[in-house]
C-alpha cells in the first residue's frame, strides 16, 4: 500500500511538471491555433539558463531563477515574431513544419554550445524530506506541488479577472472580432507566448532539480508528453491542461512501477491515441464544428 501511495506521489510530481508545460501548449493553441512544437525545448532552455546563471556566472539562486524565466519569456516572444507571425494565415502544415524546425534549431544550438555530453547539475532545492506515517515525501516533491498549485491559482485568476486575461480569452474565441473590438491582437499573442514560455522555464527548473543532469534533448520527451497531457485534458482548456498533466503523470508512474518501465512511454502515447479516438475534444475541451 505504501509503495502505491509513493508511486502516486511520484506521479503527481512529474504530473505537475507536465501540467506546467501543458499549460503553455494549450494557451498557445487556444490563441494561435497552432501546436508550438518547440515548446518542449523552451524547458531545455530554461534548465540551461539556470545552469549558466548559477554554476557559471555564480548569480544568487533567486535572481538566477527570475533571469531564467525572463530568458524563456523573451525567447517565446522572439520565436513567435520571427517564425510564426509571418505564417499566421498559412496552411497548418506549414506552421507545424516551422515549429518542428524551431524545435530542432533550439536543440542544435544547445548542442553546439554545450555539447552532447550530459552536464551534472546539483539541485537548488534543499528542503528536507517529510515523513507522514511510513510514507516519505521528498523535498523536491513538496516544492513542485507548492509552486505548481500557486501558479495555477494565479493563472486562473489572471485569465478570469484581469483586462489582459479577458483580451486573451476574446482573441482565442474569435481573433477578428476581438480585433474589431479594439484589442491589440499581436500584443495579446506575444503575451501568451511569453506566459507560456515563462511557465515552461519554471517547469524546466523543476525538471532539472529532479533529474540533476542537463542534455540538449532534455525537453523533447517531456514536451511531447505534456502535449499528450494537453490533448488529454482538452486542448485550449486551461483547467484541462492541469488535469491532463497530473493524470498523465500518475498513469506514467504507475505503469513504470507495475507494468513495465520499457513500455511506460508506449502506454503514455497510447493514452493519446485512445483519447483522440474516443473523445477527440479531450476531458474538458469543447467540440467545434467546421463551417462549410
Amino acid at each position: 500500500m505504501e509503495s502505491v501511495i509513493e508511486q502516486i506521489i511520484n506521479g503527481l510530481r512529474t504530473g505537475s511538471i507536465y501540467a506546467l508545460i501543458a499549460l503553455g501548449y494549450t494557451m498557445v493553441y487556444g490563441i494561435a491555433k497552432m501546436i508550438n512544437f518547440a515548446h518542449g525545448d523552451i524547458i531545455m532552455v530554461g534548465a540551461y539558463s539556470l545552469y549558466v546563471f548559477i554554476s557559471l556566472l555564480h548569480i544568487p539562486v533567486i535572481l538566477s531563477i527570475l533571469l531564467s524565466i525572463l530568458v524563456c519569456a523573451l525567447l517565446g516572444i522572439t520565436m513567435e515574431k520571427v517564425a510564426y507571425k509571418p505564417l499566421r494565415n498559412a496552411p497548418p502544415l506549414a506552421v507545424l513544419i516551422t515549429a518542428i524546425g524551431m524545435s530542432f534549431l533550439l536543440q542544435s544550438l544547445a548542442l553546439l554550445i554545450f555539447k552532447a555530453n550530459p552536464i551534472p547539475f546539483k539541485s537548488i532545492i534543499k528542503l528536507a524530506p517529510v515523513k507522514i506515517g511510513s510514507i516519505t515525501i521528498a523535498g523536491i516533491s513538496i516544492i513542485t506541488f507548492l509552486v505548481t498549485t500557486l501558479i495555477m491559482i494565479f493563472l486562473t485568476l489572471f485569465i478570469r479577472y484581469t483586462k489582459a486575461g479577458r483580451a486573451m480569452r476574446a482573441v482565442s474565441e474569435d481573433r477578428q472580432a476581438a480585433e474589431l473590438m479594439g484589442i491589440d491582437v499581436n500584443r495579446t499573442i506575444s503575451m501568451v507566448f511569453a506566459i507560456g514560455s515563462a511557465l515552461g522555464a519554471v517547469a524546466g527548473i523543476l525538471y532539472v532539480c529532479q533529474y540533476q543532469t542537463l542534455q540538449p534533448t532534455l525537453g523533447a520527451l517531456p514536451g511531447i508528453k505534456a502535449f499528450v497531457a494537453a490533448v488529454f485534458g482538452g486542448i485550449g482548456s486551461v483547467p484541462g491542461a492541469m488535469l491532463g498533466g497530473i493524470l498523465l503523470g500518475v498513469i506514467e508512474s504507475i505503469s513504470k512501477a507495475y507494468i513495465s518501465s520499457e513500455l511506460a512511454d508506449a502506454i503514455v502515447f497510447s493514452v493519446l491515441v485512445l483519447v483522440l479516438l474516443l473523445k477527440p475534444s479531450g476531458l474538458l475541451g469543447k467540440n467545434r464544428i467546421e463551417k462549410v
Binding site: A83, I97, G101, M102, F104, L105, Q107, S108
Partner: peptide
C-alpha cells in the same frame, strides 16, 4: 547538420 536542417525548414 541538424542546425542547417532546422534553419532550412523555417
Amino acid at each position: 547538420r541538424k542546425l542547417l536542417y532546422a534553419l532550412a525548414l523555417i
